[in-house]
Amino acid sequence: MTTFLNLTLNGLATGAVYAALALSLVIIYQATRLVNFAQPALALVAVYIAYTVSQMTGSYWIGFVAGLLSGLVAGALVERVVIRPIAKSSELNAIIVTLGLLLIVQGGVGMIWGNRQHGFPYAFDYVGRFSPADVFAVASVAVTALLLFGLYQFTPLGLRMRAAAFRPEAARLSGVKVGLMLTAGWAIASLIGALAGMLAGPPFISPNAFDGVFVYGITAAVIGGLDNPFGAVLGGVLIGLGMSYVSGYAGPELATLAALAIVVLVLSVRPDGILSRPAARKV
């Protein structure tokens, strides 16, 4: 029973990170029908800036905030400078460009900060069962998800963003600046991606630090339903728990297989993901 409890708590903590990454992907997919493969690159930049600021100021939290803010700015910049000029041509072009951006940024980070590992601290003590660091991971992602829900559901900005995502033309006719809403979406998504990076980074960061986590983040987004934020959170938790149970009961070498098995299982029952709304996509 304790094993089960341990594995569950452990799965929740890692699942929270996957959920945050999945959220960042879903926000952008909802708005632009684009899977942003550059998301880990944006998180990478945020985490390295957090690392540098922490080193300079000696405070983890100043670095943490700097990291989140740089994620926000990086997301907005990428949308404006890189994605917007090519978004009109075809969805596939944009996807390839995000892939290219991922490679460029990873290379760039290696050139600036070096390819060796840097120590990156946990926010809190990480020793023991459901350590303070784990609690922080779960709590911060839960709060982020709630704030995001509130933003979408109860604020004028959220209403504009949803309108722009669902029916850009109707939104424009209602006076919504659709382009600005896309930038806002990318900024918010990258902020959440940066949070995921800050949680997934410790104890070491390197230019390829997020490759693995990103794979599970994307997996979580897909099984949850790419266009549903709730699905992203659910998918993240599901993948986290599933991998934790399998590695605990059957051996850690099977954890990756577990993720794959979950994908196959979920998608064979619900091909669009657990919480997707396929009808809404036909418009």
Partner: peptide, 15 residues
């Protein structure tokens, strides 16, 4: 916008 409620559609117009 069928994904929004009636009120949200209306509010959007005056936003």
């Amino acid at each position: 916008i069928t994904e929004l409620t009636v009120e949200e559609n209306l509010r959007l117009g005056g936003l």
